[in-house]
């Protein structure tokens, strides 16, 4: 790296560059710090606005919605949408069930497959290391395209119209293989693995009892991202599912949004055919969107302590 600094400058008297003084010397001036704190705080508020918007829309009463439209602070609140959502709505419950099952299955599968695939690639003495690294990496550069993928998944693998369609296509990722490989390399010292082998543990036992426990932050990161990826997945369902009983949550809520917008915009053309007031409640739909986000917001703090660490270590040298 070509950094234009005089070499002797880096060899300054240690006492002068002691850690505490160093921090103080490099710290922002109090004014700048205050400005920065306020600026970032303001941006945080902006970031949270969309979440606020759907939450507030979901507790706007239907009457207030019909007379005033959506508002930042509705004239009348109502939790009816949620009551309604949980009292009936078999579509939502089926979709929820499908999404939970596929998220759990997909997450377990991806931690298993990524964790296993990346480990040998991290070991210096694995014979086919280069080949299998390339085998995974190449798929990040080139793909067969959507049409071919569609035909293969439907006509050869035949996973359409099943729960498999919702998670199998997302159950592995070359990107996470590369992150995990780096994570193993930096976090699991070779000496530990060698001493385990000398003590008589075989390859599998070493992996499950020695290596995996040390790699938990990395594996938790993979778990979190694949869980979120499958929970939020819309494309698998759009492409591979035609039967309502296998619809995922995201697909279901998208279809409902699409329907209501179409009906409302064409209300004039359909006068007499559809009575707007008989449409399934709009706040009900917003409540559905909120309920989709809910579990993520709750899971977030639990995983967060792992994934920032997992990501930073795995990604820096990746």
């Amino acid at each position: 790296m070509d950094i234009p600094i005089k070499p002797e400058a880096a060899l300054l008297d240690k006492s002068f560059a002691s850690k505490k003084e160093g921090r103080d010397m490099l710290a922002l001036s109090p004014t700048t710090n205050v400005v920065l704190t306020i600026l970032l705080g303001f941006l945080c508020v902006l970031t949270l606005i969309p979440i606020y918007v759907i939450v507030i829309a979901s507790i706007t009463s239907e009457a207030s919605l019909l007379s005033n439209g959506y508002q930042l602070w509705p004239t009348e609140f109502s939790t009816l949408a949620y009551t309604f959502l949980f009292s009936q709505g078999s579509i939502v419950i089926t979709a929820y069930k499908n999404t939970i099952i596929s998220t759990v299955a997909g997450t377990v599968l991806s931690v298993f497959m990524v964790g296993l695939y990346a480990y040998p690639l991290s070991r210096p003495n694995f014979k086919f290391k280069t080949f299998f690294t390339f085998f995974a990496f190449f798929t990040m550069l080139f793909g067969g395209g959507l049409v071919s993928y569609y035909m293969v998944t439907r006509q050869i693998l035949q996973i359409q119209n099943s729960l498999w369609a919702l998670f199998l296509p997302s159950a592995f990722s070359p990107f996470w293989v590369i992150v995990m490989r780096t994570f193993y390399q930096t976090n699991v010292p070779n000496e530990i693995i060698e001493s385990a082998r000398i003590d008589g543990a075989n390859e599998w036992r070493t992996l499950f009892q020695i290596v995996m426990p040390l790699a938990i932050p990395g594996l938790a990161t993979v778990a979190l991202f694949s869980a979120i990826g499958i929970w939020n997945n819309f494309f698998n369902c759009l492409l591979l599912v035609d039967e309502a009983k296998y619809y995922s949550l995201q697909f279901t809520i998208y279809t409902t949004l699409n329907n209501i917008r179409f009906l409302l915009e064409n209300a004039d053309k359909m006068a007499g055919l559809v009575n707007i007031s008989e449409l399934p409640s709009q706040t009900f739909r917003m409540a559905m969107a909120v309920v989709t986000v809910g579990p993520i917001i709750f899971a977030y703090p639990f995983f967060q302590r792992y994934f920032i660490r997992g990501l930073t270590i795995g990604a820096v040298k990746g």
Partner: peptide, 26 residues
């Protein structure tokens, strides 16, 4: 907080666009 939106699906964002920008929007 800045990282949080990464975990929210585009479908939910589509709802937000609707609630903000449709004819009845905020």
């Amino acid at each position: 907080i800045f990282f949080l939106p990464f975990f929210i699906s585009w479908i939910v964002v589509a709802y937000v666009v609707y609630a903000l920008g449709s004819s009845q929007g905020i």
